[in-house]
């Protein structure tokens, strides 16, 4: 464990806590894409298949349980909670995320480190996570008013993967044969997808204005 990875995990944890806090306290999911949340639940389900068979550390297991629990409960809130679901903007959240799942699965079947079920599912979760934010970014472009909790959520979610890239660089230079191209490329693509969001987020922060993305 290095500082970049710990910071990345904490940033990721904060992003889901910010979102859960928003949904649980103000009982609203305005501006939040259910499709991105469903993709994330699928990412964690596919990535943490070995949560009970492959014990790494208490930290690792606890964090996996938190990410699984939070992503599925956010999906539950947005789908079934009688108050929260009313604030879900379903005719704006129209990104066909099923068109993301299949290509990621096919790509994972083609490009992976080992052709085993667990490894393919793990690789699938990497590719899917790289594009999971797209429905949310599209929704942000559409909904003019981005409340700052949703803005913070997206920012933290992008920042965590950027910190993970620093972690991979650190591990590459400190651990022999630590080479994982698939993880690195998909992590880089994921972070680049946030590039323009980061730009506008920083601009709004610098000019102390409300965050709004150009149409």
């Amino acid at each position: 464990m290095n500082i970049f990875r710990l910071a990345g995990d904490m940033t990721h944890l904060f992003s889901v806590l910010v979102l859960l806090l928003k949904i649980h306290t103000i009982k609203s999911c305005a501006g939040v894409s259910l499709k991105t949340q469903e993709l994330y639940a699928l990412v964690f389900a596919a990535r943490y298949l070995d949560i009970f068979t492959n014990y790494i550390s208490l930290y690792n297991t606890v964090m996996k349980l938190i990410f699984l629990g939070s992503s599925f409960s956010i999906v539950w809130y947005m789908r079934y909670h009688k108050i929260v679901r009313r604030s879900y903007d379903k005719d704006q959240d129209t990104f066909r995320h099923y068109f993301l799942i299949l290509p990621c699965l096919l790509l994972a079947l083609l490009i992976n480190e080992k052709f085993t079920f667990k490894e393919v599912m793990w690789t699938f979760s990497l590719y899917l996570e790289a594009v999971a934010i797209l429905p949310q970014l599209v929704l942000l472009q559409r909904t003019r008013n981005i409340d700052n909790l949703t803005g913070q959520y997206v920012f933290l979610l992008g920042a965590y993967r950027a910190l993970y890239i620093l972690n991979w660089v650190y591990r590459y230079f400190t651990e022999p044969h630590f080479v994982h191209w698939i993880t690195w490329v998909s992590g880089l693509v994921q972070t680049l997808l946030y590039a323009d969001f980061f730009y506008y987020y920083f601009q709004s922060w610098k000019n102390n204005q409300k965050l709004h993305l150009p149409a």
Binding site: R5, D9, H12, D50, N54, I56, S57, N60, M63, K64, F67, W122, Y164, N167, E175, H177, F178, H180, T183
Partner: peptide, 10 residues
């Protein structure tokens, strides 16, 4: 040994 250390990441 085969390095599947990256699996220790979340």
């Amino acid at each position: 040994e085969v390095n599947d250390d990256v699996k220790d990441e979340l």
